[in-house]
Design a protein around this nucleic acid. Sequence first.
DNA 1: CAAGATATTGGTACTGATACTAAGTAGAGA
DNA 2: TCTCTACTTAGTATCAGTACCAATATCTTG
Lengths: 200, 200
Amino acid sequence: MIHDVFIVDDDAAMRDALSLLLENNGMNTEVFADGSTFLQACEYQNPGCVLLDMAMPGMNGHEVLTTMNERGLQIPVIFLSGYGDISMAVRAMQLGAIDFLEKPISGAKLIKRLQRALMNDEGRREMQLHIQASRQSYSRLSPREREVMVLVVSGLLNKEIAHKLQLSPRTVEVHRIHVMHKMGVSNIAELVSVAGLCKI
Amino acid sequence: MIHDVFIVDDDAAMRDALSLLLENNGMNTEVFADGSTFLQACEYQNPGCVLLDMAMPGMNGHEVLTTMNERGLQIPVIFLSGYGDISMAVRAMQLGAIDFLEKPISGAKLIKRLQRALMNDEGRREMQLHIQASRQSYSRLSPREREVMVLVVSGLLNKEIAHKLQLSPRTVEVHRIHVMHKMGVSNIAELVSVAGLCKI
DNA sequence: CAAGATATTGGTACTGATACTAAGTAGAGA
DNA sequence: TCTCTACTTAGTATCAGTACCAATATCTTG
């Protein structure tokens, strides 16, 4: 399995050392000197992980992670901080980081904690790809179809949906069929499941 | 809203001080001198929170939280530690603690962080009660009804279920009706939803 | 303007689910 | 042994959903 590790650190020597270490351990690495560059360029294809420095000019690590959360970028984040305290670490974890390490750190320890994060991501990725596909299908529905879908998923009969939307039952039936086709499911059970997965 | 705060600390003076502070702020408190006593006696009725000391004779804080996780005890945990370092805090957060505070701490700050945890728990509790009710309904199904239910939820037709279980379609129909009644739902959409909630 | 997507409504026929009633068998427990 | 529960099967009638068919109006886009 190929893993992509994104290294975000303002210290060039640190970037090079980390990149070298991880490439020698069979990982792909991409390096970024600051948070906003990373946020623009991050192409999250393979299961991976972010090694994020806390203190950087421009956006600091917390801000980068907050932005990632806002954008729904769910790749796991490990903080690497030169001078941190407990409250900084706790805040990082509360924002959703999966680990927080102090520099300097031994190569062996870093690799070990990184492996844990990558394992974590592998399982999550599969589910995520599935969810993403469902979201995409949902986005291809017309507005009316979406309205019908949420009512179908909530358990209403076509008749009730028709009344609620001021439509003829026929129309609802047609929309319903379209929804099933576009969402790629063949029965209500599956439709409810995928709707639940992508939290519609 | 009444809140229960469980204080687990081996230092009697600390227990008293915390209890006094929180009671004066309108919370119910229960104090425990060690982890195992707490684990035995914890009656989690109202939305609440645990203030957990890290260094204690017998079980330490990490062990208490680990045991809580194993038992599915989902009340939020705030660690209060006298001498901790980043790695200890990070491990605590990875185990699922929602906060990690250092002693000594000001009353105002403690109350503030505690309020956050309690708010968090209020929302979670409602969902939790709902899930628990569904689990109970599910436990009241007969073995055959459970088999039928999982197949219904997975989207199979009665005919297919009958074939899979070597039954007559009639029998499946009856089980299906019983499942709907016992689970307290009136259509497949609701059934799939509650099944998804309690991860059946 | 023409083409295509969207929203709307209708018909017919088939399949599946539900509600009702009814009943036989088998095993556990009083 | 009797009872209770679970499991099994059956008939009938009704209602809901699906798969075909087809048509009209609106609105955006090329």
